[in-house]
Amino acid sequence: MTLAENANRPNYQQVVDQLYQTSDFDFVGIALQSAQPPHQITWQYVAGNQSEQFRNIVLRSGIGIAGLVVRTGKPFWKNALRATSYSDALYTPIAASESLTAAAAIPILATPFRLVVGVLLVGYRSTQTVSETTVSRLSRYLATF
């Protein structure tokens, strides 16, 4: 990444911290694609985490909520995450390691080509649910940075 690109990049830790502190989400995280090959997407900025296991998770395109967002470039949400098993396409390693019951995720897009370079994911550990309203709220929030 060039110095100019880095200067235009939002402060993702600030995004995560502010969203975590001003909302009722139990977990907020951003996974970003590495600039170096093999361009893995890993969780780099989190708040509300229970452990450091997130550091070992590499997103796979099409697998889990965040992986679906990476592959499709569209927001996604799911409730009743504890009902998914390891063999389920919606099994989400970050949800399992952070004990999330519901999660919503939106793509982070790079301009001008609007390529997916990351994912903003939020989640609950309680009985609260996520919906299209949650996704809209996240999209508006990310647009402010």
Rank of each mutant, 00 (worst) to 15 (best):
I30N: 00
A96L: 10
R125F: 11
A95M: 03
T84E: 14
Q53L: 14
F145Y: 08
T134V: 10
N6F: 14
T144C: 08
K78L: 15
F145P: 01
P10Q: 13
Q53R: 08
L120I: 03
N79Y: 07
E52M: 12
P93L: 15
H39P: 01
Y12H: 09
A143R: 07
R140Q: 06
A66K: 03
L59C: 11
P38W: 08
S85F: 12
A47R: 09
Q40N: 11
Y141V: 01
A7E: 06
H39K: 05
R60I: 12
Y86P: 11
Q50S: 12
K74V: 03
S97G: 07
G67K: 14
L59I: 07
G73R: 12
F145V: 05
W43E: 07
S51I: 04
V117I: 14
E98C: 11
R140L: 11
G64M: 05
R55E: 15
Y12W: 14
D26K: 01
T42E: 12
Y91S: 05
D88E: 03
S136M: 10
P112V: 06
K74P: 06
Y91R: 10
F25N: 03
V70Y: 15
A89L: 06
N11Y: 10
I94R: 00
K78V: 09
R71I: 07
L90A: 05
F27D: 00
I108A: 01
L138H: 04
S136K: 14
Y45G: 02
N79M: 06
V16C: 03
T127I: 13
A89N: 08
T42I: 14
R125L: 07
A80Q: 08
G123L: 05
G29C: 02
A66R: 12
P10R: 04
V135W: 11
I94Q: 06
P75A: 02
E132Y: 12
M1D: 09
A105S: 02
P75S: 13
R9C: 14
Q21H: 05
I108Q: 04
F27P: 00
T129K: 06
R140W: 05
P38Q: 06
A47Q: 03
V122S: 04
T127R: 02
A7T: 12
D17S: 09
V28N: 09
R55P: 06
T84Y: 07
